[in-house]
Simulated assay, not measured.
Amino acid sequence: MKALSGLSNKITIKQNDLIKETYIYVDKYLDRANEIKVYEQLNQMNLDFLIVPFNWEFIDNKMMSKTKYYEGAITLHETHICVNKMKAIIKLISKIHNLELVDIKAFDPKGFLDFFIQNTKKCLFDLSEFKPKVESIIKSYWDDKTKPVFSHNDLVKGNFINYKKGWKVIDFEYGMYNHYLFDYASFISESLNKKRWNVFINMLNLTSKELSKLHDLIYYQNYLWIYWASYMFEQTSEQIFVEITKEKIANLTN
């Protein structure tokens, strides 16, 4: 059995299956029941641009899922994110947003952030100067009256898989309905070097109002993931989470 790295799950490869075992401290903030509803519906759709588990069960209060393992596939970690790849990512996000799922929860920006604030003994950075703006962003989250769309909500480089010259999206643990700009903000803040942000943003052809909302969501996510990484560091003592907070604080301050 081959082991792979995973920040939120224990991951192993057995035969042709990728097996994920959840961690208890991650289960505390992820809604596994909602996650299963997402998998059930996406499996029925049989979409060629998504890779989702085909089997899942709970063993000793931990969720175990099986996904087909693609030997030789690469992620965005192993390649330069050029303009053509950015165009492909935009198309993938648009396809995800056009999916219609039922009885799936909506993202709660305040509630999700509050979990990490309340369950972290000490944030790795003092975020007090950023707090008023984040509170304002949360308060006005839906002020534009936009219709929520089904969203991935965690578009890190490792969640894009290229297999046989086709990009696919994996890992819908955070899959919920959300603001349509959240996924674009997620990809920008999670997967792009800050020097490349404007290249991607210009390709979205946003109005000035949409652009302002996008930057607010980027700001919120960087703040959120600092608290998330601080929580994860307290649970695991793994240095990678300290490095994540350094990257996110740089995004907020530079």
Rank of each mutant, 00 (worst) to 15 (best):
S191K: 00
N9F: 00
E243D: 15
S237V: 10
K195M: 09
A106S: 15
N9T: 00
F58T: 11
Q235R: 15
S151Q: 04
E129P: 04
E234M: 02
N9Q: 03
I89N: 01
E173Y: 03
K105M: 07
N254G: 08
Q235H: 10
E210T: 07
L101P: 06
I138Y: 07
D60Y: 09
T236V: 09
D216N: 05
I240C: 02
S151T: 12
T120D: 02
M1F: 11
K195N: 14
S191C: 05
S128N: 12
F107T: 09
W197E: 11
L30P: 02
K66F: 11
H179Q: 02
I161H: 07
E247V: 08
L30R: 13
F49W: 08
D108A: 02
I188A: 11
S189M: 06
M86W: 06
N43G: 05
L101M: 05
Q118R: 10
I13P: 03
L211E: 08
K121E: 15
I226A: 01
I74C: 02
F241Y: 15
W56D: 06
Y25R: 09
I161Y: 04
F107M: 07
N43T: 04
I74R: 02
K66M: 10
I81T: 02
F116T: 04
K213W: 10
T67I: 02
T253M: 14
